[in-house]
Simulated scan of single mutants.
Amino acid sequence: GLLYPFGPGAGDRSTPREDDGMSPPVALGRPFVFYGRPHRSLYVNNNGVVSFGVGVPEFTPHPFPLPGHRPFVAPYWADVDTRRGGDVFYRESRDPELLARLADDLRPAVAPGDPVPRPTWAFVATWDRVAFFGAAGKKVNTFQAVLAMDDVTAFIMLNYGDIQWTTGISNGGDPHTGLGGIPAQVGFNSGDDVHYYNVPGSRTPAVLRVGHTSNVGVPGRWVFRVDRFTATEGPPPATTETAAVTQGPPMATRATSMKKEEEEASYICG
């Protein structure tokens, strides 16, 4: 009941059914202001990310903040493979009914003294029953990101349906349960190397329960105002992995797809 309408009946387009795929660049009818910068286009990435300026084919989630000026929202950054099941839908909307519902649902996220949101534009991206890379069972996830703007404020809403897996096999996950290894990342990265937010439980087994947690008192829903600089955490723990990421090595992409395919073939063959 948390998710906004989606699918062909709602006028959605869909991304290609492929591993590590994404939409073409989507030109927006109005700029979306994300951490002080207006963005006029975005990508909807199969691996659980909505990104600005550049697509995100990487299948291994890294903790925020990321180096390299890469602004994006991660409702559930993990190794999705829609060839094995599911669809990724998206659309822009100015539908009055949708905007009225958004106005009501955003109200709990407004701090005292801040203007009441009155959205005039929205973008809805939905990952519907998507499988993970190397899946040998029927575990699927459903989740959604909603971007909303009025003349003053910009918000991001993350909605969660049934979350059944956290990890694909290339990141150490079990092919039957989709658990273990490096679990999914949830949050957003501003792209300025400073401001970011990791939803509690990200990249730990606890992310499986993101559909039962909230920052607005509605289990399965997280809402953030993102036009200005807020919701920045302290620095992440200084682990070996964090230090490596801070130095900016290339993240895993389809350039390493041969490794993914070899892992999958090895599992299938025995």
Score class of each variant (00 low, 15 high):
165 W>R: 10
45 N>I: 07
23 S>F: 02
214 S>D: 00
68 G>Y: 07
77 W>A: 01
45 N>D: 10
261 E>T: 15
156 I>P: 01
159 N>K: 07
145 A>E: 01
27 A>N: 04
66 L>S: 01
48 G>T: 05
252 A>M: 11
125 A>F: 09
57 P>N: 00
102 L>C: 03
256 T>I: 08
104 D>H: 12
138 K>F: 09
69 H>W: 11
33 V>Q: 02
31 P>N: 02
88 V>A: 03
200 P>L: 14
40 R>C: 10
30 R>W: 15
147 L>I: 04
71 P>M: 10
189 N>Y: 11
114 D>A: 15
130 V>G: 06
154 A>V: 13
224 F>P: 05
148 A>D: 00
125 A>M: 02
227 D>M: 11
264 E>F: 14
251 M>S: 09
112 P>M: 05
137 G>R: 07
155 F>D: 03
169 I>F: 04
166 T>C: 06
268 I>Q: 04
156 I>E: 01
80 V>D: 00
70 R>P: 00
220 G>V: 06
256 T>K: 14
161 G>V: 07
201 G>T: 03
76 Y>W: 14
83 R>K: 07
161 G>N: 08
76 Y>R: 15
8 P>R: 15
90 Y>N: 01
18 E>H: 12
104 D>K: 11
9 G>K: 10
58 E>T: 09
113 G>V: 13
83 R>F: 05
232 T>D: 08
94 R>S: 04
235 P>D: 04
90 Y>I: 05
126 T>D: 00
193 D>Y: 11
184 A>S: 01
223 V>N: 04
121 W>E: 08
147 L>G: 02
49 V>R: 00
32 F>Y: 14
76 Y>F: 13
155 F>W: 14
142 T>L: 08
110 V>H: 06
251 M>T: 11
227 D>S: 13
233 E>S: 12
133 F>G: 06
187 G>Y: 11
65 P>Y: 14
180 G>T: 07
79 D>M: 10
126 T>R: 05
157 M>L: 11
164 Q>N: 03
137 G>Q: 03
37 R>K: 10
46 N>L: 13
102 L>P: 01
269 C>W: 15
106 L>C: 01
186 V>C: 06
209 R>S: 08
229 F>P: 00
205 P>W: 12
66 L>K: 07
164 Q>S: 12
219 P>M: 08
127 W>G: 03
